[in-house]
Structure formats: structure tokens, C-alpha cells
């Protein structure tokens, strides 16, 4: 746990990373309190045909969409699903990738070799194409998109953890522990994993931003979130038919994606620098 405190301090000292942290915290707050923050929370599903495609005004700061729904409310409500998707996908990927990486990094032999080859196969296909294929083969929908994204993201964790474990396996303190008679699970969970935690944390933060982008893209291509979900990618897709007149329709959901992903990326960047003193030195 010490490592986290060690990592937090440099972040607060770096204004850019702090901005990232603030953006992420803001988004989490918005997500938690979305139904209370949104001016028209019922616009998650309600339609108002008489006020379709209104430009931004005092009543509707971001304008209304093709079914007369308040875009500001939907952007706020969409934060929740964006963060849920990101957290679940990264969580599931970690649950698969971290054990695989630990095992394959710790042990030698055909099994760990095979595990890493399988990882390579998954990494050899561009993630989006694989997610699209999976999304089409199963029924399209948000759950499918999350499964597909998790199935394609875990290899990144496996790689990261594998590399860290390999590095630590030869470390002196591990040898000492083994000499003291500590069992493998104990060494892995109590000693190797905490030391690999910063690398995992950086990967997870970057993965959040990445997942939000890809999930939005899947929503945009029609294999992700289903209407009337206030999904941002879906909103941009729905907006296309109403351009160039309704410029506000794709603009604000897109900006929301940009800000949230920017937040995660800036934070991840800061974390990476904090975790890797070599890079921090080069940054000044």
C-alpha cells in the first residue's frame, strides 16, 4: 500500500497529472450522482416529439436530439455507463491477465510457454476487428461488447505482469524468501504482486481510457450499447443523419468522450512517470 502513497505524491506535484486526476474524479462524481444532476433524468428513455433538434438554449444548454431529448441530461447519464463499462472490462481483463502473467512469468515449461503464445495470438489481431467479430457472432449489445473487449484486453495485462514477474523472479529478496521456506503462492501474492502493482495500475488507467474509446466506437458501429441508452458513441452515430444542421448533436457527446479519456490518459501518464523513476528524471 506504501507504493500507492509513493505514487500519489508526484502526481499531485505534476499539474498535468493533477488535471487528469481531477477530470477522472469529476466524472466519477457525475456518474454516481447522474440522476440528480441531470436536468431531465427521464430523458434516458422518454421522447418529446415536439421539441426535436432544438439548438442549445437556456432550457437545453446542449440542445436536443432527434427525439427531443435533452442532450446535456443524456451526456450526464451516459457518464455512468461509460465508467461502468471501463471498470468492468479492465476488471475482467485483470482477473484473466494477471494470474496468467504471474503463472507464466514464475514457472518455466510448456504450459507457461503455451500461455504466452496464446497471448501473442490475441495480440496479433487488432483488438477492434476481434471485438467486431465476437460482437457479431454473439448477439450485439452492451454485454457482448464488454465480453469482447475483455477477451481482447487481458493479453496486455498478461504481458505486463509476465515481464514484471520475470524481472522479480531473479531479484535477491525473492531468493531470500524462497530460502526462508515461503511457498510459491505466498511469494507471488504477498511479494511479487505488490511489486508489480504500479505497472498494473498504469496499464489499468491507460486501459480505462482505451476501453471507453473502443466501447464508444462499438456503440457507434452498432454492435455496442443499444438505444435508447444514453451511450455517447451511439449518440454520435444517431447524430450523423442530422448534419450539418444539428451540429450540437454529435459535438457534446464527443467532447464528453474526449474529456474523460483525456483524464484517464493524463492520470496514466503521471502514474507511469511516478512508477518509473528513469522516465521521471528525463522529464524534470
Amino acid at each position: 500500500m506504501n507504493t500507492f502513497r509513493q505514487m500519489l505524491r508526484p502526481i499531485l506535484r505534476d499539474p498535468v497529472a493533477t488535471l487528469g486526476l481531477l477530470l477522472v474524479l469529476l466524472a466519477v462524481l457525475v456518474a454516481v450522482f447522474a440522476p440528480w444532476l441531470a436536468p431531465y433524468p427521464e430523458d434516458a428513455y422518454e421522447s418529446h416529439l415536439l421539441q426535436r433538434l432544438q439548438p442549445p438554449s437556456a432550457a437545453f444548454p446542449f440542445g436536443t436530439d432527434n427525439l427531443g431529448r435533452d442532450i446535456l441530461s443524456r451526456v450526464i447519464l451516459g457518464t455512468r455507463s461509460a465508467i461502468t463499462v471501463a471498470v468492468s472490462v479492465v476488471g475482467i481483463s485483470m482477473l484473466i491477465g494477471v494470474p496468467v502473467g504471474l503463472w507464466a512469468g514464475w514457472r518455466d515449461g510448456w504450459l507457461s510457454e503455451t500461455l504466452m503464445r496464446v497471448t501473442d495470438v490475441f495480440l496479433a489481431v487488432p483488438q477492434l476487428i476481434l471485438a467486431l467479430a465476437l460482437g457479431q457472432l454473439m448477439a450485439p449489445g452492451l454485454t457482448t461488447a464488454m465480453v469482447a473487449l475483455s477477451l481482447t484486453y487481458w493479453p496486455f495485462f498478461a504481458r505486463t505482469v509476465h515481464a514484471e514477474t520475470r524481472r522479480l523472479r531473479t531479484a535477491l529478496f525473492v531468493d531470500a524468501l524462497a530460502g526462508l521456506g515461503a511457498g510459491t503462492p505466498r511469494i507471488l501474492l504477498a511479494h511479487v504482486l505488490p511489486n508489480a502493482a504500479p505497472a498494473i495500475l498504469v496499464r489499468a488507467t491507460i486501459g480505462m481510457g482505451f476501453t471507453i474509446l473502443t466501447a464508444a466506437l462499438l456503440g457507434f458501429l452498432g454492435v455496442g450499447a443499444a438505444p435508447p441508452s444514453p451511450d455517447w458513441g451511439l449518440a454520435v452515430a444517431e447524430a450523423r443523419q442530422h448534419l450539418p444542421e444539428a451540429w450540437w448533436f454529435p459535438t457534446f457527446p464527443g467532447l464528453a468522450i474526449l474529456l474523460l479519456v483525456l483524464g484517464f490518459n493524463l492520470l496514466g501518464d503521471g502514474l507511469r512517470d511516478a512508477a518509473d523513476p528513469r522516465l521521471r528524471r528525463s522529464r524534470h
Binding site: Y45, N66, L67, P140, G222, A226, P227, P228
Partner: peptide
């Protein structure tokens, strides 16, 4: 899509839960 979303909103008023499945 539009028809389904409108239908969904109105059905909700009579207590029916319509789930839209893109296909």
C-alpha cells in the same frame, strides 16, 4: 430506431417494459 424508442416511452406509461435490440 425512432419508432422503437417512441413506442418504448409510451409503453412504459402502461407499465410495459420494452427492450430495444439492435439487429
Amino acid at each position: 430506431t425512432q419508432a422503437a424508442q417512441m413506442f418504448q416511452a409510451d409503453l412504459r406509461r402502461v407499465g410495459i417494459n420494452l427492450k430495444i435490440v439492435p439487429n
